[in-house]
């Protein structure tokens, strides 16, 4: 059987919020190493990769590798029934066709369980090549969410340009043009407030704002976000999930017009 108990149930609620705008359904692949999920959005322009390590769970048991196909809309409805303080347990019998979510209140005076049907998803996983990125930019996740929200008003595409001076986000459209320049933080007193840029070579790529805005639904997971870029390869937007794992979004660039 499979059983994973997470003391900080709010993390799973936030993971749900981070996935459900982009994906309708996905397979949760469980092994003794932990839980992994990889899926493309319907338009095959972006890919989401989630990893939750077994060590991050209060209790984790996976007798046999298991792939649970889930409708994320339904799963989101169930997880909305959990309070932020609840302990969440995911359980399933081997080759089961349902999964059960158990929510325990901190003082155990309320225990809920929800059983959901599983789906047969023939999700083939894509191979993601290891890449030594030309530029990586770490910045406050709230800052990145703000930039995506503000600039997407100006156009459907955003140009992200990284040079040794800093990183510039630009968008242009009918109403005009917006540019936001972030300089590398001088002093890094509060780690998560810093803007840290590692640049091997300058890169400038164009991306569709609507996907970037979907990615920022993961903002509540981590105070900082890391963008990785190389010429002519997908952008990576990564949010760490406490000490248990990460969610990574890959976005194909647009052809520079």
């Amino acid at each position: 059987m499979f059983e994973a108990r997470l003391l900080q149930g709010s993390l799973l609620k936030k993971v749900m919020e981070a996935l459900k705008e982009l994906l309708n359904e996905a397979a949760w692949d469980c092994s003794d190493a932990g839980i992994q999920l990889q899926a493309m959005d319907n338009s095959h322009v972006s890919l989401v990769s989630l990893n939750l390590r077994a060590e991050g769970f209060d209790k984790y048991r996976c007798d046999r590798n298991l792939s649970m196909g889930m409708n994320l809309g339904s799963m989101s409805k169930i997880l909305k029934c959990a309070s932020n303080e609840d302990i969440i347990t995911i359980k399933a019998q081997d080759n089961a066709d349902t999964v059960t979510f158990v929510f325990e209140s901190p003082d155990q005076d309320k225990v809920s369980d929800y059983e959901m049907k599983l789906m047969n998803l023939d999700q083939e996983h894509l191979g993601i090549p290891e890449t030594d990125y030309a530029c990586t930019i770490r910045l406050p996740s709230s800052e990145f969410a703000r930039i995506c929200r503000d600039l997407s008003q100006f156009g459907e595409s955003m140009v992200i340009s990284c040079t040794k001076e800093g990183v510039r986000f630009s968008a242009t459209g009918d109403i005009g043009t917006g540019n936001i320049k972030l300089a590398q933080s001088a002093k890094v007193d509060k780690e998560e407030e810093a803007v840290v840029i590692e640049m091997q070579e300058p890169v400038s790529l164009t991306f569709a704002c609507r996907y970037l805005n979907s990615f920022t639904k993961a903002t509540s997971l981590s105070k900082s976000v890391q963008l990785s870029m190389s010429p002519e390869v997908p952008l990576v937007v990564e949010y760490k999930i406490e000490d248990i794992g990460h969610v990574r979004y890959y976005l194909a660039p647009k052809i520079e017009d």
């Binding site: 493309m40 095959h44 890959y250 052809i255």
Partner: peptide, 14 residues
């Protein structure tokens, strides 16, 4: 969308 490339043109199917 015009000019939008697909993720599948970068990552290989197994």
């Amino acid at each position: 969308q015009q000019g939008q490339r697909l993720i599948t043109s970068f990552f290989s199917k197994p």
